[in-house]
């Protein structure tokens, strides 16, 4: 029981790190990037290649995954995404689905279609007893790392100059622009950091869930649920939504494997029905 809760929390925090970049970019530019999972996949596969082929330590692979995905995100933002902000949501969806398809095929070409995992360093393997429950060390590592990241993000958002500008831009882009805040620049930076976090999340995922080329499509729906339940204007909303989803998903699959898949979809549709004004349009005034 406690083991499941712990696994769920670890999974949920991982989802949060994976999804938070998407939430912020959506809130900031009202831009829907269904290809967000592709950045996570990039980080995941980089970790696999570095560790399995070149024997790089897991601890070095994590920051590398972050940097790699962040640079990838920045480059794609600057060259491709920037043309999409003024287009319709349909165009944005089609465009990002196209990117997902391409990413899937590229990874398939270079890495093969089979599922791949890594061998965790021995220091992260094994289980410890905690209040009578046996908990994987790696789960604890994930929770601590993601927890620190969350606290760090919250600190950046609430205490720094960049954070206050970002919040102003999310709140009302036009007003922020009027006040001389360079929303475009903030967005580019946020996009890169968000992609980097996704990459880091992808790297962490390789220790819990395996990587395969369909990762972006499979997890797209999870990201969307995090946004629909948590909203796209704060980071605490998505944080709790991720935890809820993580625990619900792990518990659902454990206790009711037959209907596990339903639970999360039903939650999503129910939330969307209960907030019919649309989750992405803030309640007017």
């Amino acid at each position: 029981m406690l083991t499941i809760l712990f696994d769920g929390v670890a999974y949920g925090m991982l989802l949060f790190v994976l999804a938070i970049g998407l939430c912020v970019t959506l809130g900031l530019m009202n831009f829907i990037n269904l290809a967000h999972g592709a950045f996570a996949m990039a980080g995941g596969y980089l970790t696999i290649v570095m560790m399995n082929r070149y024997g790089v330590s897991f601890y070095w692979s994590l920051p590398a995954a972050f940097v790699f995905s962040a640079i990838l995100g920045a480059v794609l933002e600057h060259t491709l995404y920037v043309h999409l902000y003024t287009k319709s949501h349909l165009d944005q969806v089609l465009f990002s689905i196209g990117l997902v398809f391409m990413a899937t095929a590229i990874v398939d070409y270079f890495m093969g279609a089979n599922q791949q995992t890594i061998n965790l360093p021995s220091s992260l393997e094994g289980r410890v007893d905690f209040l009578g429950a046996s908990i994987g060390v790696y789960r604890i590592f994930t929770i601590v790392l993601c927890g620190l990241l969350t606290i760090g993000l919250q600190f950046v958002l609430s205490k720094t100059r960049f954070g206050s500008r970002l919040r102003a831009a999310v709140d009302d882009g036009r007003v922020a622009r009027g006040m001389g805040i360079d929303v475009t620049k903030i967005f580019a930076l946020t996009f890169a950091v968000g992609s980097g976090l996704a990459g880091l999340g992808g790297a962490l995922s390789t220790g819990i869930i395996s990587m395969d080329p369909t990762f972006p499509l499979k997890y797209m729906i999870y990201f969307l649920i995090v946004i629909s339940v948590g909203g796209a204007t704060t980071i605490t909303g998505p944080f709790f939504a991720s935890l809820l989803l993580g625990v619900a998903d792990v518990a659902g699959k454990y206790y009711m494997p037959a209907v596990g898949g339903f639970i999360i979809y039903t939650i999503m549709v129910a939330v969307l029905i209960l907030r019919p004004q649309g989750l992405f349009t803030r309640a007017s005034r």
Partner: peptide, 14 residues
């Protein structure tokens, strides 16, 4: 009926 494009996308997908 109501909601933005994104809400519609996600509801229909769901």
């Amino acid at each position: 009926l109501r909601g933005s494009d994104l809400t519609r996308l996600m509801v229909t997908l769901g």
